[in-house]
Design a protein around this nucleic acid. Structure first.
Length: 297
DNA sequence: CACCATGTTCCTTG
DNA sequence: CCAAGGAACATGGT
């Protein structure tokens, strides 16, 4: 499920469903996902706690709860890893095979399911300290992006995945943002011009914003069945408008025509991850797509 | 069997 | 201390 837009959609979905609900009991089926807290400590802290709110920071879900008799809120941090999902189930519905943690809320259960168990649902907040700026924060400036890039010889695509630089971009939207900015994924970070950095920042913002807007229109089914999770990335929900299919312009489209110029999209591997790009639009000499993109501010 | 997959952390090496 | 590269984590799809 998870890059910044998918987490944002999930948080908006969960917040009204969880607010003011009390955890009656917990079922920790994979102790690893609550580590370094032990299951015993985890239960002790969270049993009888009540959800106050759910927010997002980068790709993390930030749950705040109130413990009975205590003033200071308790913060629970969720991360979906590669395959994590969170949703509510009827209390007597069977738990899925890879349910990692389940909260008994009375009439329903709040379930964290994760087939690969790379995700986390933990009281350890340390990961938040290592995050760079939020790309959708209005205070996110070209300067904030430029400073760390100047010191790096790494390819810009690899840098975009670095959560210290900007927090929330993943492998899909890194390719998408570079395509929109007309910048080669192979360009060494320190060699980007001031103008390219500006274009990149705006492309990141626009790609993420559009993904959120698009996801908001899709009736994601979090309630256990989950058939539509994949469609959020690659397909189209029944009845959703056609542009949904066109949303990802290069990711996972090796060999298909570039939507700007028709050149076949190429795939390459950087830092052990796939990158997709248009070799014609995303090179120094390509001016044509700059003009198309120039109107965005 | 091979290779691929939306992510992060830890360890090594320079 | 930093940057960079690679393995590890774990399961499933094609």
């Amino acid at each position: 499920m998870p890059e910044l837009p998918e987490v944002e959609i999930l948080v908006r979905h969960l917040a009204p469903l969880l607010k003011r609900k009390t955890i009656r009991a917990l079922d920790i089926r994979r102790p690893k996902v609550v580590a370094p807290t032990t299951p015993g400590q985890f239960v002790q802290k969270l049993r009888r706690a009540r959800f106050l709110d759910v927010q997002r920071r980068a790709k993390f879900l930030v749950f705040t709860l109130r413990q009975p008799g205590k003033q200071a809120p308790l913060v629970l941090l969720g991360h979906l890893g590669m395959t994590g999902r969170m949703y509510l189930l009827a209390r007597n519905a069977p738990l899925p095979k890879h349910a990692a943690v389940s909260f008994d809320l009375g009439r329903e259960r709040f379930v964290f399911e994760d087939t690969r168990y790379f995700g986390r649902l933990t009281l350890n907040l340390a990961p938040l300290d290592r995050l760079g700026p939020e790309p959708l924060d209005p205070g996110f400036t070209d300067d904030q992006l430029a400073a760390p890039l100047k010191r790096s010889a790494q390819p810009i695509k690899v840098k975009l995945l670095d959560q210290h630089l900007v927090a929330g971009i993943g492998n899909i939207y890194a390719s998408e943002a570079l395509f929109r900015a007309g910048i080669s994924p192979k360009a060494p970070a320190r060699r980007l011009s001031r103008e390219q950095i500006g274009r990149l920042r705006r492309a990141i913002r626009d790609v993420l914003t559009e993904a959120i807007a698009c996801g908001s229109t899709v009736p994601l089914n979090y309630a256990g069945v989950g058939e539509r999770d994949g469609l959020f990335y690659f397909g189209r929900a029944p009845g959703a408008p056609d542009y949904y299919e066109e949303r990802l312009r290069v990711y996972d489209r090796e060999g298909q025509s570039c939507p700007n110029c028709g050149t076949p999209i190429q795939r390459l591997v950087q830092a052990a991850r796939s990158t997709y790009f248009c070799p014609s639009c995303q090179c120094r000499k390509s001016i044509k797509r700059r003009e198309n993109a120039a109107e965005s501010v």
